[in-house]
Design a protein around this nucleic acid. Structure first.
Lengths: 244, 244
DNA sequence: CCTGACAGGTTGTTTTACCAAGTGGAGCGT
DNA sequence: ACGCTCCACTTGGTAAAACAACCTGTCAGG
């Protein structure tokens, strides 16, 4: 006799209600939000519930509060999710089959200096690389490479040229028990090699944006590196961050 | 007779204490944190205080909690400040006098397409640009340009070639009453023009990393654009972000 | 008129209390 | 031996109350 769908907690409902009112202009930017007591009366909840909701809104940047005066509307936080066009991140989560492209290289080679440094391996160590050419509407779009230490690639399906039916995170967590925590990224630009220009169908005088994303676990240990090569005339990177 | 230095609230003290214990290894990564009741007893505070401290730690990524089991130590959040080498951001805050470089251009010109789009101006509008060549140990290092709509540049000291004694944010807030809120960034790469290569002392076949940072106020209205041009053989961009 | 005390508003912090939901083990019954 | 219930313990959420710190307008006294 239990209700199967659980209702969200009251403070979360209040958050949503107030967000909608700010977005709809009921509470305009710069204006004073109703005081805690007014919200308590209007919604029939206790003060801790109201305060919890307002704390969430403040931490998300919707409002700012000033002791003794009240809480002021800032507007929809343009920053909420720090939207970023993060090439290669989709690759960590989505199965290869869901993106159009082909595996162009599967090999164990001596790691380039930058890769070895990011993986915290001795210079000239062997590393496993799986390289895919991603296409967009039939046209070559970018080169995405995954670099792993040799021991992490063993026992995985990455050594096969067949597309992975799982996301990279899911696969490595199931097979090797590792958990991704964060990515440390380096962004550079350079001219393409002849082979890269041919594979990507780009002019030899067009620069290449190179993004190296070192995926680490919570302890900081590097697990793998995702290298994304983007012809600069067809891609750009977007980011957004708050400022103090 | 009031104490001049105000003591931080109890929950904030608890946060600091627990952070120190995690960093020192007293609470190792993966281990179970003492339960709420144990912390209540040890520190002699009430449950909401303990919960408030643990909520902060969870939101900052130090611990994760699992209902019915307990709270687990994750370790120092490598992400806390999302450390990023943000060229141009220092320019918003620090006075020009504190960085070595010279003003190479101060003019009102037709805004390039990308600048006009970021400033939300009609195409081919006039915009004010202040361009500086930053030097590092005597060598030219990067070109930093600030683009403003004409009306925002009026009444400021930006039209003078003399170095600003204030940070850009401070100056514009004092003179025009605007408040910076966030930055929307675009990162591209291209070949340098002949003039840029000469000013930056770089090879004509070296690509240029171009970072366009649109500074906006909380409402989303664009205030100005900071354009940073970096020779790709001498600079790279670093970023870090959590993954879920 | 000006100044200062004061009253009443606001948010910030802390406590006590209770219930709900999830986990895991002890112990009972079959 | 197996499965089951129940209990103890965990975190999550809500309510009611009090005090502290801060802001602002009012009002009395100079």
């Amino acid at each position: 006799m239990m209700s199967l769908e659980s209702v969200p907690p009251k403070y979360a409902q209040l958050v949503q209600t107030l967000q909608r009112r700010i977005e709809s202009g009921t509470y305009g930017p710069g204006s004073l939000l109703p005081s805690e007591n007014q919200l308590i009366q209007e919604f029939g909840v206790s003060r801790p519930t109201v305060v919890a909701a307002l704390r969430v809104l403040r931490e998300q940047g919707w409002i700012e509060s000033q002791q003794g005066k009240g809480r002021f509307v800032r507007g929809r936080p343009a920053m909420s999710a720090v939207e970023r066009n993060r090439p290669g991140q989709a690759y960590l989560i989505r199965p290869e089959a869901e993106t159009s492209g082909e595996v162009v290289e599967v090999a164990t080679v001596a790691a380039p200096n930058r890769i070895a440094a990011l993986l915290e391996l001795p210079s000239k160590s062997k590393a496993f690389v799986r390289r895919r050419l991603i296409t967009d509407e039939g046209e070559p779009s970018m080169l995405v490479s995954v670099w792993l230490p040799a021991e992490l690639s063993q026992g995985t399906d990455l050594t096969s040229a067949a597309p992975l039916p799982q996301g990279l995170h899911e696969h490595l967590q199931a097979r090797k028990g590792v958990r991704f925590d964060h990515v440390a990224e380096q962004i550079t630009a350079r001219m393409p090699t002849a082979g890269e220009a041919r594979q990507l169908g780009m002019g030899k005088s067009t620069p290449l944006l190179a993004v190296f994303g070192a995926v680490r676990e919570a302890s900081g240990r590097a697990l793998l590196v995702v290298e994304v090569l983007l012809p600069a005339d067809r891609h750009e990177l977007d980011d957004a961050y708050p400022i103090g």
